[in-house]
């Protein structure tokens, strides 16, 4: 069970991301760099948030409302960071377009922009999975496992891998939604993303109740699927619009 279990937990959390990375991102070096820089940005945000809260730690484990405030500040900070990331991306897009003009290549396609957004989101998701799940997995490679009190039926590592998978998916695709929302100035998309993030984070508060993870995880996955559907619908709409515009112009 030992090494196999550890690898299994890691793949459970990161499997979809890894396959997405291999099939889409790894072919384009620029996207790899985007993933890395977005991961770094998320790490910095985590360090800043933890720096803010460091003085109050450890929180009493019964003070769930304190954790609620903590989650709220963290989510708010990260959503602020997303806007910063968008501004940076905007500048980068201008540079890339200018560069493309200079070498007389086509400007960024719509799919390119979406891939950059995907890579940025994946960086966020990857950082989440790495720091909240993978880095705690070390004991799982040993002979024992670990249970937390509130969720005593499922090993802690399994629960955290499952939750991490949900958050990786949310982070990855909500970045695509957000970038598209900013680009189209679509208010719905712009508010959709922070709300989804907040709901997902607050949903994990349910885990405080004894046996709460039975309820918390389905809520989380409901939000995840909602994000996926919304993202899929939006991308489909954009692509068909784009195609029809192209065929009109030809």
């Amino acid at each position: 069970m030992t090494v196999a279990a550890g690898i299994g937990y890691a793949l459970l959390a990161l499997g979809p991301t890894v396959s997405l990375f291999v099939s889409v991102i790894s072919k384009k070096p620029f996207l790899i760099l985007t993933v890395l820089s977005s991961t770094l940005l998320w790490l910095i945000s985590l360090i800043v948030v933890s720096g803010l809260w460091r003085a109050f730690l450890p929180l009493k484990s019964d003070a769930w409302w304190l954790y609620g405030i903590l989650l709220f500040t963290a989510v708010a900070f990260q959503e602020g960071l997303r806007i910063l990331f968008w501004k940076l991306y905007k500048k980068l897009e201008d540079i890339l377009d200018a560069f493309a003009d200079r070498v007389s290549k086509p400007r960024l396609f719509l799919t390119d922009k979406m891939q950059i957004a995907l890579a940025g989101g994946m960086g966020h998701g990857l950082a989440h999975a790495v720091f909240f799940c993978l880095s705690l997995l070390t004991p799982a490679f040993g002979p024992a496992t670990f249970f937390v009190d509130n969720c005593s039926r499922i090993p802690f590592f399994l629960v955290s891998a499952i939750i991490a998978l949900a958050f990786v998916t949310i982070h990855t695709f909500s970045m695509v939604i957000a970038f598209n929302g900013y680009a189209e100035r679509n208010k719905v998309d712009q508010y959709f993303v922070p709300i989804v993030h907040l709901v997902a984070a607050m949903g994990t508060l349910v885990n405080f109740a004894s046996g709460g993870c039975i309820i918390g995880i389905p809520i989380l996955y409901f939000v995840t699927i909602l994000t996926l559907l919304h993202c899929g619908k939006m991308v489909w709409r954009r692509l068909t619009e784009d195609r029809s515009r192209q065929s009109n112009s030809l």
């Binding site: 360090i47 460091r54 954790y67 705690l136 802690f156 991490a164 994990t204 885990n207």
Partner: peptide, 24 residues
């Protein structure tokens, strides 16, 4: 810099929240 920041600031925070199954 990141080593010490992680070790001093981030680790207690992340372990504290993650062992309560709180994530964001």
């Amino acid at each position: 810099l990141f080593y010490f920041l992680t070790r001093l600031l981030m680790e207690p925070f992340v372990v504290g929240t993650a062992t309560n199954l709180l994530m964001f």
